[in-house]
Design a protein around this nucleic acid. Structure first.
Lengths: 257, 257
DNA sequence: CGGAACGTTGAGTTGCCTCAAGCATAGTGG
DNA sequence: CCACTATGCTTGAGGCAACTCAACGTTCCG
């Protein structure tokens, strides 16, 4: 049966709205030092007309491995993004079985599914040490009513998420799903400006397997197969990519349409 | 290899914006006679503050079985809803294999995944004879910039779609997925005010199987199993529901969390 | 350094798929 | 109207991809 672990959900940094940026175009303090501003969905890709989003952001975390950002049934008050580190969204069914819905990289907005419910029915759990950005929804709503650009940005982001989910629902062999998973993560890292020669995988094999509908043993065997094929070099929590082309070829049908 | 069928995509009815409603609160001509206004996502559930959505709607169709509403690579210009009948959204991968992403009931908005791309990369195909409602996106954009309520309605609808997709991505046995599929359709019919004692299934067994990642033979065998268990009576394109409770029990883990 | 958690590898099992054959229905032309 | 055909649906038999079970190795952390 599923059990919650206790977590420290206090905010490690003062909310950024206690400090006002001097004029538009200067990033709010919360984003000023962030390496991902220009690629951050949540911050509006650093675009000037969305600077408002950066002025309402707050820090949340720092969470350690396994700690919860939020839990099922907790009220929906904010959208979130990872700032640094990685996190997973987990749904729990009535039998207590977990289902890993997504892994979140820095700058990727999540919690959007809770808008229509008014509460979260998933949990978000830190993988390793993770910093989060919080976007209070009330502030976002006020901002968006003044700035139509902000709403269109939200709509665009949600559209992208709907599109992305539909890609990963296909019926493909284990090997192709696995390759597609790795390629997708690398591509997302690339669009964030992160290194593409390696891939940090702070989650367990069980998490990967759960997400891809595979047994952990199968995940292990597939890593071994990709290693033997010369595609990757495997460390426990890092995959070094020797032949991304080859991997992409295996994943072709899953990802291309 | 996948091949397009030819289809008649002409509009069967004059666009409704050629006729102006006299004042707010009166449904636009396109929605006036529609049985689903009060449950229509697209029309904003008949709410007064969203009456603008009903004034920009156009009719599209009537399409016959197998005809396309739009195709992959066609430019994104509108959102759509089924008005009467049923339709499926189909994605086609680089090997030409189809993937049935969703079935659409009257009043359910679709095409939302194309907003971020600027073009559709799926096809929507009529199941039986189907009438569609078209929401030109430019008009919607203008409307939404004037009426924040309209944008929030869109955001809410997209949130619901993200949430719904995440439910159907779980790893459950064939029998449970099948039961959950039927129960989900009945529940959606119920919220539209349609009969819940039977379920029209105008799509082929192949479509159902594809959508659920099952072989058509498995679909057939599961229908037989549900029949023998006394849950349903099966006609080719209609399922009569004798024991919805029983079905819901089988689907419990898939649907409840 | 010892224990627990996680990961790997092998062996055997199984749920669903594929293949094959027969049946029902819808559409078509005589 | 009825044969005739094409298409889709059903049912059975056998196979296989991925799962479960089991044992062992590795890493992490107190």
């Amino acid at each position: 049966m599923f059990r919650y672990k206790e977590s420290d959900m206090s905010v490690a940094y003062a909310p950024s709205d206690s400090i006002r940026p001097s004029h538009r175009g200067i990033h709010a303090p919360g984003c000023a030092g962030c390496a991902h501003v220009s690629a951050c969905q949540a911050g509006g890709y650093g675009r000037d007309e969305l600077s408002g989003m950066r002025s309402i952001v707050e820090r949340a975390g720092l969470l350690r491995d396994g700690e919860y950002l939020y839990r099922p049934r907790s009220p929906f008050r904010s959208l979130y993004a990872v700032q640094s580190g990685m996190a997973k969204t987990v749904s729990v069914d009535s039998a207590g079985r977990e289902m890993v819905l997504a892994f979140h990289l820095p700058g990727e907005l999540f919690g959007l599914d809770a808008i229509c419910l008014g509460y979260h029915d998933n949990a978000v759990i830190s993988l390793g040490r993770t910093q989060f950005c919080r976007f209070p929804f009330e502030a976002l709503r006020c901002l968006a009513n003044r700035e139509p650009e902000v709403q269109w940005h939200l709509i665009n982001t949600m559209s992208r998420q709907i599109h992305h989910q539909s890609l990963s629902s296909g019926d493909y062999p284990a090997e192709e799903r696995m390759a597609a998973f790795l390629v997708d993560l690398v591509d997302r890292r690339a669009s964030l400006g992160l290194a593409t020669d390696h891939l940090p995988l702070p989650m367990s094999r069980a998490d990967i397997g759960n997400h891809l509908r595979l047994a952990t043993e199968t995940v292990s065997r597939l890593f071994a197969r990709f290693r033997d094929a010369g595609f990757v070099r495997i460390e426990r929590h890092v995959v070094h990519l020797n032949d991304l082309r080859g991997l992409r070829e295996v994943a072709r049908h899953v990802l291309e349409r």
